[in-house]
Design a protein around this nucleic acid. Structure first.
Lengths: 212, 212
DNA sequence: GTCTATACTTCGATAGAC
DNA sequence: GTCTATCGAAGTATAGAC
């Protein structure tokens, strides 16, 4: 079989990922994407119809990949607590492979999902749905205390997104924040894993009234 | 005393907050800021020298305000656990008063702090430093288990930022994620408070080896 | 301090040959 | 599928009168 040799679209998507992550949708320049993909602008507009469609195509692909990884973790045989460990480590690994991912997510959250059509929104929803299902299993089995699955998703992964998206800043910020030794980036995953085990654990104590 | 009547700079900063939060630094348009502030462009460039300096002025102001609030909480007389409750509720209240704040933070994290000079970075650092000091007190007193203050800061407040910055999206997303009732936005703060109490609590159990 | 008018640049997108 | 050349719109910033 002759390969279709459709290497351009993939190269364009890879270049777009870097550009959109680094500058945001509004700040992204189509010229830069084309140049980085070693393709001229007309070629880019031939494959993708517009800047918007290029962006949405990229996001759908990334959300789908991330959701698949979370789904795989949920389908495996393991205790709920161990699955939570794997969700956190799995997302960190995914970000390690696709460094642009958390930046784009943060920007899209700030944009209020302005560039997401229904299809892309559905692809995004698959990520918290997969993770939420794992949490729900733990609640039902009694391993976890009662908690809203979507809330747990945010408590679990927002710090990972936040921390790994801005690691260069934190390295610059750390000396201004604490006199303790600079934080080893990789240890944050372990920190979050240990903490979330307790966060989600059933706690018979603590009346824990809300405080203003 | 005659009032200086310097109402323009404040109106410009207020308009800039909305514009920068809604579109990001690159997407923000100076014309829109000027129009929203009911001031012409030349006036804007008269008070602030450039788009960059306007942005940094805004950020310094917001970071300083947020840090002051955290510092007040830390200085009050209360148990470490209760202070954590107040930090979470206090940040949520601050965001409620300045809805643009978490959006700008998320964007700046994604930008890798590209627009932050040394002075603005120092203002930003005061926020995690204040919160980190509270955490450190709890660790020292034995109320909390051993934890890096900066890590705890992220685990505590990143979900709050993330959730409150994107509340319109989550409302649209929730039905696609869970068949359970839609999550009441205000309850997230209580969820995070209760969870973080356990997250930070001293846990003699759990060998908790890292999982890949 | 405040305005109008505009210089200069860069953007997203397309035309049309090959 | 791929290219060069370019259009019209929109951007940041400034000049200069008041």
């Amino acid at each position: 079989m002759s390969r279709p040799a459709r290497v351009s679209p993939d190269r364009i998507l890879a270049a777009a990922a870097l550009e959109f992550a680094g500058r945001g949708f509004a700040g992204a320049r189509v010229d830069r994407i084309a140049r980085r993909a070693r393709v001229n602008k007309a070629m880019l507009y031939y494959h993708f119809k517009s800047k918007d469609r290029l962006y949405r195509t990229l996001l759908r692909r990334m959300f789908t990949l991330a959701a698949e990884r979370m789904q795989t973790i949920g389908a495996a045989g393991a205790s709920p607590a161990e699955k939570i460990d794997r969700v956190i480590a799995g997302m960190a690994a995914f970000i390690d492979e696709h460094a642009f991912f958390p930046k784009i997510v943060l920007r899209e959250v700030a944009d209020g999902g302005a560039h997401l059509d229904r299809e892309t929104l559905a692809a995004l929803a698959a990520v918290p749905r997969s993770v939420g299902a794992i949490v729900q299993q733990g609640v039902t089995s009694g391993d976890f205390g009662p908690v809203h699955p979507l809330f747990a998703y945010f408590s679990m992964l927002a710090p990972v997104m936040f921390f790994l998206a801005g690691s260069p800043i934190w390295k610059e910020l750390a000396p201004l924040v604490t006199e303790a030794s600079t934080p080893p980036t990789a240890d944050f995953v372990v920190h979050q894993q240990h903490g979330m085990r307790r966060f989600l654990s059933f706690a018979p104590d603590s009346p824990a009234r809300p405080t203003t």
